[in-house]
Computed example of a mutant assay.
Amino acid sequence: MTSALEFHSVSKTFHSRGKTVQALRGVSFDVTEGEVFGFVGPNGAGKSTTIKVMLDVINDYEGEVRLYGVSAREAASRRGVAYVPESPALYEQFTPLEILRMALDMYDIRRADAEAWCMQWLERFSVAQNAKRRIRELSKGNVQRVALAHALVVEPRLLVLDEPLSGLDPVGRKDVVDILADYKRDGGAIFFTSHVLHDVERIADRFGFIHQGELLTTRSPRDLVSERADRFIIRYQANAPLDGEHAAIRDGEYEQELDEPALPAFLSRLQTAGGRLVTVKPAVSLETVFFKILEERRPA
């Protein structure tokens, strides 16, 4: 597989007002063609710095970054790369159609059907009905859709997204997830950052957890969850909740979280009490795994 993005032992230190902050600490990972890579971590973890390094906004770092084999310090590396920030700054006096036409011009893409091509992408993001309204007149969610259409209209090889589902309603989130899945199937590579680990579970083939500039692990969601699936959520029906911490779902229905060794005894008590088991599912999610990893790394 061809590497779309490579980070090799990248470190970056900031000096400000007599303070030194190491934003990245020997970060190494790669993203291949046709892969979706999620980059997650808390505020200040180093996600934005990582994007600025790959796009050459920051270039005084240690290590090496390559996009499709070309050093990120060379302008040629960004041919075929599109980026959507968390808060897109689109020209408010322009229309979505004008914004997309501008993208084609900036990438020197000449198409006889340019307007129809742009309208096709606005349609895919469900904003074609606003094609000739000013950006300033659109909702935050629709501006986000226009920004994503602006990135994809140029058919990039690598798509860099910062919180791509931010500001979207549930329908918009599903639409964007489906469009990104199509882009991936066509061989495009995606690098995206997110605070919302549920989004990573929905989109990413692999993810990296970054904390205080250090990449803690790079795995697939399925692998990491399966390794640590040692707790379960039990939903059951009974006249009263069984002993232990529980949550009432509705009258006569409860949820309880248990370690795996405690399951047999709990189910036996439930049967004795005349209750009925509804579901058993792993309690672990990427979010719980992330906090467990952080807890393990805290100084004693």
Results as ranks from 00 to 15, higher is better:
Gln120Ser: 15
Ala181Pro: 00
Gly172Leu: 13
Val176Asn: 05
Ile135Cys: 10
Val160Met: 08
Tyr107Ile: 00
Arg219Phe: 00
Pro170Met: 08
Lys132Asp: 05
Met119Trp: 00
Leu216Thr: 12
Val171Ser: 05
Arg133Val: 08
Lys174Ala: 03
Glu201Asp: 15
Asp182Leu: 12
Asp169Pro: 01
Arg124Ser: 05
Asp175Ser: 10
Asp199Arg: 03
Gln212Pro: 01
Ala128Trp: 09
Glu155Tyr: 09
Trp117Glu: 12
His150Asp: 15
Pro221Cys: 11
Leu159Asp: 02
Glu214Leu: 11
Val146Met: 07
Val153Asn: 03
Arg173Met: 07
Leu122His: 11
Gly167Asp: 12
Asp175His: 10
Gly141Cys: 11
Arg219Pro: 00
Lys140Ser: 02
Gly172Met: 14
Phe207Pro: 04
Gly208Thr: 04
Tyr107Gly: 00
Val127Glu: 02
Ala181Ser: 11
Val177Asp: 03
Thr193Asn: 14
Trp117Val: 13
Pro221Val: 07
Gly208Lys: 03
Glu201Phe: 01
Val196Asp: 10
Val196Lys: 05
Ile135Ser: 09
Asp205Asn: 11
His150Lys: 15
Glu123Leu: 02
Trp117Phe: 08
Gln212Tyr: 10
Lys174Asp: 00
Met119Arg: 15
Glu201Gln: 13
Asp199Ser: 08
Val153Lys: 06
Phe192Ile: 09
Gln129Cys: 00
Gly172Asn: 12
Ile190His: 00
Ala116Gly: 06
Gly208Ser: 02
Pro221Ile: 09
Pro156Tyr: 07
Ile179Met: 07
Asp108Arg: 15
Ala112Cys: 04
His211Gln: 05
Leu158Thr: 04
Tyr183Gln: 08
Gly172Tyr: 08
Gly208Ala: 12
Glu123Ala: 13
Gly208Ile: 02
Arg124Leu: 03
His211Ala: 04
Thr218Ala: 15
Glu214Asn: 10
Asp205Ile: 14
Val153Ser: 04
Arg206Pro: 10
Ile179Phe: 02
Glu155Pro: 02
Gly213Ile: 10
Val127Asn: 07
Glu163Pro: 05
Ala204Met: 03
Gly172Gln: 12
Arg145Lys: 15
Ala116Thr: 12
Trp121Leu: 07
His211Tyr: 12
Thr217Asn: 01
Ile190Cys: 02
Ile109Phe: 04
Leu159Trp: 13
Ser126Gly: 06
Leu152Asn: 06
His195Thr: 11
Tyr107Arg: 13
Phe191Val: 07
Lys140Tyr: 04
Arg124Cys: 00
Ser166Ile: 06
Gly141Met: 09
Ala151Phe: 15
Asn130Val: 03
Arg111Val: 05
Val200Pro: 07
Gly213Val: 13
Leu168Pro: 01
Pro170Asp: 03
Arg206Cys: 12
Thr193Arg: 06
Arg202Gln: 13
Val160Leu: 12
Asp162Thr: 14
Lys140Ile: 01
Glu123Thr: 12
